[in-house]
Structures are given as structure tokens and as C-alpha cells.
Design a protein around this nucleic acid. Structure first.
Length: 480
RNA sequence: CGGGGAGUAGCGCAGUCUGGCAGCGCACAGCGUUUGGGACGCUGGGGUCGUAGGUUCAAAUCCUAUCUCCCCGACCA
């Protein structure tokens, strides 16, 4: 095997591993403008499966999709003080249209809270109009300094949900519900064991009163915020005058929420499950779940083998499996094995003359790379067995990722312990610090409060940093 | 946006210091032999050397500007 064809190992250089993998697995490519990304068909197919899995859940929880303009009057951003402060530096602005200088510059949406606020104010009069539960599938632009394919690009694709409610309880409930939707999706479909938690004041969304997050650990021990759900209180309702008449005929401001999950999540899947041979995609979301590689010597053997392979493809497809038959004749089987492993296809079926005779196939599983993951299966009842194997792989990925995260999470009772812990993963400890303490820790260690987990021990302890009595445990880590 | 590195065929690179025919490996095309873990032989195609200026008889090579990528820092889904 030529070294040139092997990926840089994760241990050697995780960054280099990620960058070259994204390109070589044909997930994405660079656009001509700094920081922009072209999502290639294979990457987009994965994103489409993410979209479907989420969209189904959004509909089940009563939401509708809509489309809102990408261009937003600049003045909208000045209406909510902390929002403008948060987003002004990273706005892309259109100053010309139709060859003329525009009277008012137009921002390209970095997120749609403002235009949603403007619109909801017009749509809502009565408590009978509430709640409004809308989701947008779109892309947004944020002029980031430092970019990385999928994780942080100037333009990224996502969904943003925007809801308005009559009461704060209802809005908070919605914020939690959608966080749970994300967590359910991440854990059960993407096999990423996320921690549900609340962001500290410092990490909170610009304009939010509460930001909830699903936080995941990547294969290098760093944290990735993989989805967020914000409770805005009445901040945006006041800024945009979103009011309704309550049953007592009194004007009230709405309570709003927003929640989003982006193509960053594709990066999360790559960095959670990927290994030194390439991508390892969770079966439930993999664009191709099963690839069939026919094996034959010469033109004499080929027709029978390919015919059998095609029959297997039909059989699996009939069981709603996403199957690809790799019948390219100019490549050796070994090359194809490596290529489909690079691309993270969960299951590979090899079929050759020997199998034809024996009524069997050779089945390889991506979560156990190389020959160790291979087993012989009978042709009879193959679809059922493959479906079971996919489920087993799905479960195994979650189990492996969970074990990895837990093994790389350290309970700390002192600042020194935290400094050690964050070199390899998360530090978890009692926390009673404030924003200033957090900033100091960040400056000294590059670690931040990833979240205050929603699930807490319940008792109390002593803050590892300030020594004060603490009622909450926080997760610290370096992050993407 | 500051500091560092890089840009030469689709990919990986040599050539740049010391200016003088644009090369190598892989990939690609044709033919033949191959095919159960990255096949081999022969023949062949492919380049405004990131881009734009400048210096020079002559620029991949020297000078200036600019764009993109990577790493480190300040900002973030």
C-alpha cells in the first residue's frame, strides 16, 4: 500500500486528517471566495438525510416551514441592543442593486430574528393567533475570521425555527422541547452522545435570555456546539413591537424562541465517528448504507457475478435500504474496499464466484475496519440480516462514542486538575464563578464553559475555581 | 485582522537560492494481461507555473501588489 494514498492519522495531526478527509471523501470543496464552501453531492446527500430526520420531528411537534428573504434592512439590526452588538461585526452588506447605490444598505441575513420579529408584529393581533411555530431551511452569512469546512464557513446551510408564544412558560417549554428534538436526533440518528445543557451568560446568543445547547465531544477531545435553542424572553418582542391582546383585552408582548442546527453537524459526524481509514457514517443517515462490490476473474466470470450482485441490490432496495452496486470494471476490488471505507459506507457486501457456488456473500462492517470486520453470510434472508447488522453498527457507534466521551471526561476539584483535564477532553466540576472568572480561565487555558448540564447531581459542592459554595456542575473544554 | 507557511498538469511534489527547452510519481485515455484488501506492461493526452503589473535579450525563478489555502492568535453555529 502506498503511503501517498493513506490519510494522515488522527493521532499525528487531527486537523490535517479532517481537512484532507473532507476533500478526499468528496464531502465538500473550497469556493473561490475565502471561507466559502461547496458542498459536493455526497456531502449534500448526508445533509439531506439530516434535514429529513429533523424536518420529520419539526412537523411532529407542530411546526410549519416557510421562506423568508435573505436581504434585511440594516436598520432592523439596530433595534435590539445586544443583538446588533453580537452580529454587527460579522454582517455582509449589500450596498448596490440594479447598478445604483441603495438608499438603505441591506444586510445579508446572519440569522433571521429581526425580519421574523418585524413580520410577526404584523401577523399577531390576538392571543388566538398564538403560538406561531415556523421553521426556515435556508443559508446565512456571517463574516467569520477563521474558517473551516463545515465547522465555520462564511455561508452555511441550516434550519432556524422561530416561534412566538403568549406566556413565558410556554416559550421556555418550546425552547426545551426543541433542544430535546435535537438531542434525540443527535443520539438516535447520528449516534452522537450529546450533552444537553445551558450556556453561560458569556456564551449566550446575542439577544437571548437563555441559550440551551447540545454539546458533543469530537475525536480529539474538543467540544463542538452542535445545535442550539434560545429563549428570547420579550427582548425581540419589545424591539419589534410583537404584541397581542390577551383574553382580558390587554396588550402584552409575546415571548419568542429560536433554534438552529447547521451543516456544522456534518462536521460533528465526521469528527465523532471517523477513523484513520476515513469517514464512518451512522447507518441511519449514511447516503449509501450498503455497497456491493462484485469480484470476478476475467470476462468469463463477470456476467454471472454482476447479475447476482444486481439481484442482491434489488432485494436490499426492496427492504428500503440505500444500496449502491459498484460495477466499475477498471478498478480492483481492493481499491474499491479502501474507497468505500474512506467514504464511510457502513456495510460492504463482496460477492464472487466462490459465493455463487456456496450461496453466500462476504459482508464487511465499517465500524470494524479491515478483514476483522468481515463475515460470511448466507444469501437466503440477506436483507433481514443486513438490516440487523446496520442496527447493530448504529448502536455500536453510539456506544463507542459514549465510551470515548466518558473516558475523556474528568471530574475536577481544583483549577490545576482542570488544566490537565482539558488537554485530553472535558473537565466537569462544581462551578460558582462569574463571567470574569470564566474569561480568566479562557485566557489562561483556552477552555470555556461548554454548558451547565440540564442533568445535575442534585446536591451541592465547592467551586473548583472560586472555592465558593456551588449548586451547579459545569462542563469545561476547548472547543471548535 | 496580526504573525508564520504554502500556491508549478486532476492529486502529491521537484525545479526558485545562482534567470536560459516546464519535469517526476500517481491519476486520466487507448490496447493487452489482470481482479477475494489500494494490479501490471506498452503507447499517449494534459500547463497562460494562483492572478495582475514591473525589471531583463530572456522570468516558474528577481521586485511590487493582490487572491486563495493551512497553522498560531483576537471573534463565532
Amino acid at each position: 500500500m502506498a503511503n501517498e494514498q493513506a490519510l494522515t492519522s488522527r493521532a499525528e495531526d487531527f486537523n490535517e486528517w479532517y481537512n484532507s478527509l473532507v476533500l478526499r471523501a468528496e464531502m465538500a470543496d473550497y469556493g473561490p471566495v475565502r471561507g466559502t464552501m461547496i458542498v459536493r453531492p455526497y456531502g449534500w446527500a448526508l445533509w439531506e438525510n439530516v434535514q429529513q430526520a429533523l424536518d420529520r420531528r419539526f412537523k411532529e411537534t407542530g411546526h410549519e416551514n416557510a421562506g423568508f428573504p435573505m436581504l434585511i434592512p440594516m436598520s432592523f439590526f439596530e433595534k435590539e441592543a445586544s443583538h446588533v452588538e453580537g452580529f454587527a461585526p460579522e454582517l455582509a452588506v449589500v450596498t448596490h442593486g440594479g447598478g445604483e447605490t441603495l438608499a438603505e444598505p441591506l444586510a445579508i441575513r446572519p440569522t433571521s430574528e429581526t425580519i421574523i420579529g418585524h413580520t410577526y408584529a404584523r401577523w399577531i393581533q390576538s392571543y388566538r393567533d398564538l403560538p406561531i411555530l415556523i421553521n426556515l431551511w435556508n443559508s446565512v452569512i456571517r463574516w467569520e475570521m477563521r474558517t473551516k469546512l463545515f465547522l465555520r464557513t462564511l455561508e452555511f446551510y441550516w434550519q432556524e425555527g422561530h416561534t412566538a408564544h403568549a406566556t413565558s412558560d410556554e416559550a421556555i417549554e418550546e425552547t426545551r422541547r426543541m433542544l430535546d428534538v435535537y438531542a434525540d436526533f443527535a443520539i438516535n440518528d447520528a449516534a452522537i452522545p450529546v450533552i444537553r445543557g445551558e450556556k453561560s451568560e458569556k456564551e449566550r446568543f446575542a439577544g437571548a435570555q437563555m441559550t440551551l445547547t447540545i454539546e458533543a465531544m469530537m475525536g480529539d477531545g474538543k467540544a463542538l456546539q452542535s445545535g442550539t435553542s434560545h429563549y428570547m424572553g420579550q427582548n425581540f418582542a419589545r424591539a419589534f413591537d410583537i404584541k397581542f391582546l390577551d383574553p382580558n383585552n390587554e396588550q402584552q408582548h409575546c415571548f419568542t424562541t429560536s433554534w438552529g442546527l447547521s451543516t456544522r453537524f456534518v462536521g460533528a459526524m465526521i469528527m465523532t465517528h471517523g477513523d484513520d481509514k476515513g469517514l464512518v457514517l451512522p447507518p441511519k443517515l449514511a447516503p449509501i448504507q450498503v455497497v456491493i462490490v462484485p469480484i470476478y476473474k476475467g470476462d468469463a466470470e463477470r456476467p454471472a457475478v454482476v447479475e447476482a450482485a444486481a439481484a442482491i441490490k434489488q432485494e436490499l432496495a426492496a427492504h428500503n435500504l440505500r444500496v449502491k452496486l459498484d460495477d466499475r470494471d477498471n478498478l480492483t476490488p481492493g481499491f474499491k474496499f479502501n474507497e468505500w471505507e474512506l467514504k464511510g459506507v457502513p456495510v460492504r457486501i463482496e460477492i464472487g464466484p466462490r459465493d455463487l457456488q456456496n450461496g453466500t456473500v462476504m459482508v464487511g462492517r465499517r465500524d470494524i475496519p479491515g478483514r476483522e470486520g468481515k463475515q460470511i453470510m448466507p444469501r437466503a434472508g440477506l436483507a433481514q440480516r443486513i438490516a440487523e447488522l446496520l442496527a447493530e453498527i448504529q448502536a455500536n457507534l453510539l456506544e463507542k462514542a459514549t465510551r470515548f466521551r466518558d473516558e475523556h471526561t474528568t471530574d475536577v476539584t481544583s483549577y490545576d486538575q482542570l488544566k490537565d483535564a482539558i488537554d485530553t477532553g472535558f473537565a466537569r466540576g462544581w462551578w460558582a464563578g462569574d463571567r470574569v472568572d470564566e474569561e480568566r480561565i479562557q485566557t489562561e487555558t483556552k477552555a470555556t464553559v461548554r454548558c451547565i448540564p440540564l442533568e445535575q447531581p442534585g446536591d451541592s459542592g465547592t467551586c473548583f475555581y472560586t472555592g465558593k459554595p456551588a449548586t451547579k456542575v459545569a462542563i469545561f473544554g476547548r472547543s471548535y
